[in-house]
């Protein structure tokens, strides 16, 4: 029971990270119907920017939670800005010229961008893993028995709380502001939106920037949670986050979050109770099972085939 509870906490933390990345997939897929394959790598870049910024601030291992949080918010902001620029540039250079072109073309460029980013970071930052000491240490002991202690660290609380704050903020943004309305209009019918005077290009760019910024936060959290990153983390995290987006129902922000949690929990529990070597197989199999039996996802709308 104690073991189970500990895994539950870990799963929710990991799931929050996946959920944040998934939002980027779900928004982009919703608005232009493409899988932004490079999104996982933007997450990776965000993670590296966070690493660099943290080293610049030179704060590790503090138990002063408020100082830690203060610095981390600053780090997050910087990573969000730089990742946002990455997201914007990728859309502008690799996707926008192909909008309305051959359907496979943007997916291929997305794969190209993904390969490029991975190897660019590998070439400039080196192939070795980058370790980082815990920034905020400490936590609460929830339960303890003779042989097992259930702990929730400050870090985990921070990750989950921050995720839900961001989630709430962006759900508000999408449902209540004019940017959100423009996005939904583009989702429905891009041509019509354009005719009604919506700046489609800006709307799409903004979507990419927001998605990239959230991925950067996820990258920071991943760095803090695992304490180690490399240039390749974007690939499998990307696929899992995409799985989360599909699981939750593509186009739905709460769905992406929910999907992220489910995938995080599956991964953690599978690793804890069965085999950590096959945990990716579990997550990917989940994707396949979901797509076959529930293609509209948990919170998505069912699709009626137009004949």
């Amino acid at each position: 029971m104690h073991y189970f509870l500990q895994q539950l906490i870990n799963g929710i933390t990991l799931g929050s990270i996946y959920g944040l990345i998934a939002i980027g997939y779900t928004m982009v897929y919703g608005i232009i119907g493409m899988i932004n394959f490079a999104h996982g790598d933007v997450f990776m870049v965000g993670s590296f920017v966070s690493l660099i910024t943290i080293i610049i601030f030179g704060i590790t291992g503090t138990s002063n939670v408020f100082l830690g949080i203060g610095v981390l918010v600053l780090v997050a902001a910087i990573s969000m800005v730089i990742a946002g620029i990455y997201g914007w540039t990728i859309e502008r250079l690799a996707y926008r010229p192909l909008r309305g072109s051959f359907r496979l073309a943007p997916l291929i460029t997305a794969i190209g961008v993904s390969i490029f980013l991975q190897n660019f970071v590998q070439a400039t930052q080196g192939a070795r893993v980058k370790p980082l000491q815990a920034i905020i240490s400490g936590g609460f002991t929830l339960l303890s028995s003779d042989d097992f202690v259930v702990r929730i660290t400050y870090m985990q609380i921070l990750i989950v709380v921050l995720t839900f704050l961001l989630m709430a903020g962006f759900t508000y943004l999408i449902s209540k502001t004019s940017l959100g309305r423009a996005q939904r209009a583009c989702e429905q019918d891009m041509k019509m939106a354009m005719l009604l005077g919506i700046d489609v290009n800006t709307t799409i760019s903004t979507t990419f920037v927001i998605g990239a910024a959230l991925a950067a936060v996820a990258g920071l959290m991943y760095l803090l949670y695992y304490g180690v990153i490399d240039f390749y983390i974007g690939f499998s995290a990307g696929i899992k986050a995409f799985t989360a987006a599909v699981l939750g129902g593509v186009g739905s922000l709460p769905g992406a979050m929910l999907g992220g949690l489910v995938i995080g929990l599956i991964e953690v529990f599978f690793a804890a109770y069965f085999s950590s070597e096959y945990k990716d197989v579990a997550a990917f199999s989940m994707l396949i099972v979901v797509l076959i039996f529930m293609p509209q996802g948990l919170l998505g709308r069912p699709e009626i085939e137009k004949v």
Binding site: L93, A94, I108, T109, I111, G112, V113, S114, I115, F116, L117, Q118, N119, F120, Q122, A123, A127
Partner: peptide, 12 residues
């Protein structure tokens, strides 16, 4: 390393 980097770039 650069080979793959340029490969990605070439794809785009």
């Amino acid at each position: 390393q650069l080979r793959l980097l340029l490969f990605g770039l070439a794809m785009v």
